[in-house]
């Protein structure tokens, strides 16, 4: 079976000359939970954003579901993006908007562009938004402003927004790095449910190896933009660890 996502020789050079990604290639299968690890600045975020072209890759190809993402037109790209949910470290909610509006924003790629400009969504989308909020336990907060919520609640809204897209793939960029361990597990469990029960592939960058061990099927590791490891979480021994995180690194947790 062809992998759902093929990343080949991905290179990203920023305008200032920084080589954030340097020939990264890997595949993601359907239903897979892939963790991306590496030091801060190793290119994890750039990699995730190159997949849905929030950042334009300099070279290389990304083929998703048989479509070449890297050469897609703007319109095709929107059609690709709406099936790829994304969750962010800093939640990236629109603070001054209501929670329900933030969740409904997940449908923007699907709805009528004119009606959406005046904040009109089809009734089934609205119903679905309440359903998703209920699912992450925030049904009662639907009409609060997003910035009135705590960090963990905001990230759950972020998850609900991603789920509104009916995603075939979820990109999670350090989704729990700003949260305490208890909250981290609760968010990761949502990702696990999405992955295991709905069969959505998840690519998740993580800092904590225990989370990687607990949730990921497979791991890739980046060091200064180069793919230095690809395998199961169990294969990361001390030697590999030092290779990924550098010689002075100590294992924590």
């Amino acid at each position: 079976m062809a992998p759902m996502l093929e990343v080949r020789d991905l290179v990203k050079v920023y305008d200032d000359g920084t080589r954030a990604l340097d020939g990264v290639s890997f595949d993601v299968a359907d239903n897979e939970f892939l963790a991306v690890i590496g030091l801060s600045g190793s290119g994890k975020s750039t990699l995730l954003r190159c997949i849905n072209r929030l950042i334009e890759p300099t070279e290389g190809t990304v083929v998703w579901d048989g479509i070449d993402v890297t050469s897609a037109s703007q319109e095709d790209l929107r059609r690709i993006r709406r099936r790829i949910g994304m969750i962010f470290q800093h939640f990236n909610l629109v603070n001054r908007s209501k929670v329900i509006t933030n969740v409904l924003a997940g449908r923007l790629g699907y709805v009528n562009p004119i009606l959406s400009l005046i904040n009109r969504f089809p009734a089934e989308d609205v119903a679905k938004a309440y359903e998703q909020l209920d699912r992450v336990g925030l049904a009662d907060k639907a009409h609060n402003r997003a910035d009135e919520l705590s960090g963990g609640q905001q990230q759950r809204v972020g998850v609900a927004r991603a789920l509104m897209q009916d995603p075939k793939l979820v990109l999670a960029d350090e989704p729990v790095a700003s949260l305490d361990p208890v909250l981290a597990h609760s968010i990761m469990r949502y990702l696990e449910i999405i992955n295991k029960e709905e069969g959505t592939a998840v690519i998740c960058s993580l800092h904590h190896l225990d989370l990687v061990h607990r949730y990921a099927d497979r791991v890739i590791a980046l060091n200064e933009g180069v793919l230095v490891f690809e395998g199961t979480p169990e294969e990361i021994d001390d030697a590999k660890f030092k290779e990924i995180y550098g010689k002075e690194a100590e294992r924590v947790g």
Binding site: M86, G158, M164
Partner: peptide
């Protein structure tokens, strides 16, 4: 942040402005 989050949902440029820029 909200800008890239809205763009990531497949929103058009106008939708991005209305949903991510205008409220801010």
């Amino acid at each position: 942040g909200p800008l890239e989050a809205i763009r990531a949902t497949g929103a058009t440029r106008m939708q991005t402005i209305v949903y991510a820029v205008v409220p801010q």
